[in-house]
């Protein structure tokens, strides 16, 4: 009896977590502009595709996410491997700290750094400042995912390779790297998602010509609700869901 009540509650709680997104997706197919169902239509998806601001934001976001995820995956993988060989408390501590630092603080401090550096360099905010910022907060995610994988990895495998005459680099690249490859792919996908999703830090360090998709969506949401935002949101929710599921499958391998 008590077990059943708990089950019903859990079902409601999980529904609470999914309902807002489900409603959003459902109404993206509504032919009307208002929150009353008026029939199925793909009108808002068409409108979203034809919106020049949205497509420009999408291109910027994709470019940033690709660069940021590749760079942070390389750096984070190397860091996780180094920490696995022998602990590096200062670096680990810094990475954890970067995870709990409020995004707004990370954002304004990077803005302060860039503006300070621009006094000496003839540069200005642009896409590259966003990439730098995204790499800075993604390294921690990547390192954690790969560290978790290395924890279950047999240290003697590398030692065996080295006993058989492999250099340390060769032992890493031929033995360890292939073994943790699924985790690296999973971490890369995760970095892609967190980069693509970020609004707070991005909005502070993006140049005037480098609006990302979340920035465009934020501006639209601020102006009021438009079904076009629902359509874009639905596409992002589905894409993110697919990427995260693939990432989790890879982590479980």
């Amino acid at each position: 009896m008590k077990g059943r009540a708990l089950g019903i509650y859990a079902g409601m709680a999980i529904a609470f977590l999914h309902a807002p997104l489900a409603i959003l997706v459902a109404f993206s197919f509504n032919s009307g502009r208002f929150t009353v169902w008026q029939g199925f239509s793909l009108h808002w998806y068409r409108a979203a595709m034809l919106d020049p601001q949205l497509s420009e934001g999408l291109i910027n976001s994709v470019v940033i996410a690709l660069f940021a995820s590749v760079i942070s995956t390389v750096i984070g993988t190397m860091a996780a491997y180094g920490i696995w060989r022998r602990s590096a408390p200062v670096l680990s501590g810094t990475l954890y700290l970067s995870l709990v630092t409020p995004e707004i603080v990370t954002g304004v401090s990077l803005l302060a750094l860039f503006e300070w550096a621009f006094r000496f360099l003839h540069l200005q905010l642009g896409l590259y400042t966003v990439v730098i910022a995204h790499v800075a907060f993604s390294i921690a995610y990547v390192t954690i995912v790969i560290s978790a994988r290395l924890r279950g990895y047999d240290r003697t495998l590398e030692e065996a390779a080295m006993d058989l005459g492999a250099s340390q680099w060769r032992a890493f690249s031929r033995v360890t790297l292939p073994a943790i490859a699924p985790a690296i792919a999973a971490a890369g996908l995760l970095a892609l998602v967190v980069s693509f999703d970020d609004y707070v830090i991005t909005s502070l360090v993006a140049g005037v010509d480098s609006e990302t998709l979340p920035m465009v969506i934020y501006a639209m949401a601020r102006r009021g609700v438009s079904p076009v935002v629902n359509a874009v949101s639905a596409l992002i929710v589905v894409a993110f869901g697919a990427i995260v599921l693939i990432s989790q499958r890879l982590q479980a391998r």
Binding site: L21, L24, V237
Partner: peptide, 13 residues
Amino acid sequence: WTSFLIRTYAWIF
């Protein structure tokens, strides 16, 4: 994992 911004926007909606 599905976009913080969109989850918040959903509540506005």
